[in-house]
Design a protein around this nucleic acid. Structure first.
Lengths: 245, 245
DNA sequence: TAAGACTGTTTGTCTGACAAGCGATAGAGT
DNA sequence: ACTCTATCGCTTGTCAGACAAACAGTCTTA
């Protein structure tokens, strides 16, 4: 699982670019809910691409419930409450304030997952958690050499916590958030861990979560998880190389 | 906002159907992460549609991070942690167990939003909340005639709560969930409200949330919200006309 | 043996065409 | 004058075929 480089931006496909621009125009208020978009033909001409490209772009937005089409009539901007998916936009990571809010959401769900886990965890899961914790402890002794291992075993620890909640929606949601976070901010996370995060105190925070789950103390598990993730979010946001707006 | 009928299923477009089938095949394990899908040409032949249709379908799955394509090579099933969106599948509403788990997620996020709201609410928002609460009280006096109004003002109440959290990700997430829930289960919610839910006790539950937010008591707001939504989820799931698996 | 050219396959884009559905309008009938 | 209906044009949905671009594997050649 060692990753040294962040994934670099591939040149987007045209349809993605078109979809992005249309969505941006909607987000900017240039089209209000209920408004009709230009025809596919018109959009193709404006963007200078083939209609198939525009069609694929519109398909994407339709899929998310951003717009709706009626054959023979046109494409219309949908109401906000017609959204069909929760998607992480790159904007989440661009401004410190946004990042913090975004991490707040993860903290919320993760700490609740921990509370559920305290109630429903199996013995096998407790054992798994103990192993991940031990792995963290071991890699901590290794110093910088164990950096990646620490981060990975920490991720694994909370993945097991989430799975122990017995609720696959929590699992899906958190997995998605975590993956996108690592995708975008892996290098920052590593730098951060190296510099400040991974002292013994942090390990204590995880241990507190573990003890609460093992003991079946839902509220304690929630509080301990919240404590760690709130702290971690602040440290990360302080460090992240992002605009301070 | 009065809606009497649930929206009926429109005949799907071909690309949606193809996307669904491919995704179903992946979910069923007929393609494992890393596997290559048949070529667009082959899929088009198998499904008996044009390649443009297959392309749109693949675009959708690519958009969600379910598959990834490489020009000149093919389309591959992506790893689970490459998912780009959290999407509510119809399966959420088909089995009682699923529905309960799904509502658990909403409860989690909503109650945390309430806790944040207690810390950040503005005076204007407190006033709005009071108005929605009063509206609920008024419509309660009307009996069955005020049924729709009660449900709508309740929704509005919690929407304001969520907005008061000052975190747009909470707002987006809950709005999406709530909309899909109402889209699918509106009639059940109404029946449920008519039969059991909307006694004076329920109003008390909302009032407790309101008082906590007004007082700035985050933990109380969280607990009160959780209490209501947990109860509501149980009542709804008991009633919902869904398979008991 | 290894570097580079070649080839076939696959995705990405383009073009043009027709089918299907809808709104508006003009015309027929009352 | 009013209403119903047929028609027409526009827009989305689908189809077919073509070429460009990128890639993997093979084959050639130094």
């Amino acid at each position: 699982m060692n990753r040294i480089f962040d994934s670099l931006e591939r040149p987007k496909r045209l349809s993605d670019e078109v979809a992005y621009r249309i969505q941006a125009a909607i987000a900017a208020g240039r089209f209000a809910p209920g408004d009709r978009l230009p025809t596919e033909h018109g959009l193709a001409r404006q963007f200078g691409v083939a209609r198939t490209v525009v069609r694929e772009a519109i398909s994407l937005l339709k899929y998310d419930g951003v717009i709706a089409t009626k054959q023979g009539v046109g494409a219309f901007v949908a109401d906000r409450d017609a959204r069909q998916s929760f998607r992480i936009s790159p904007a989440c990571f661009q401004k410190r304030k946004q990042l913090l809010k975004f991490l707040q959401l993860r903290t919320s769900v993760q700490s609740d997952a921990a509370a559920l886990a305290a109630a429903k965890r199996s013995k096998a899961q407790i054992k798994q958690l103990a192993e991940h914790l031990e792995e963290m402890s071991r890699s901590l002794a290794l110093g910088d050499a164990g950096l990646e291992a620490r981060i990975d075993s920490q991720s694994a620890f909370y993945r097991v916590v989430t799975e122990a909640s017995g609720n696959e929606y929590f699992v899906d949601f958190i997995a998605m958030i975590e993956a996108r976070l690592m995708d975008r901010l892996r290098s920052v996370v590593v730098k951060n861990a190296k510099a400040v995060e991974w002292g013994t105190e942090v390990l204590r925070e995880h241990e507190a979560v573990f003890r609460a789950i093992k003991a079946g103390a839902a509220e304690k598990a929630r509080a301990a998880t919240r404590l760690h993730f709130d702290k971690a979010a602040k440290r990360l946001a302080d460090r992240a190389d992002i605009a301070d707006v």
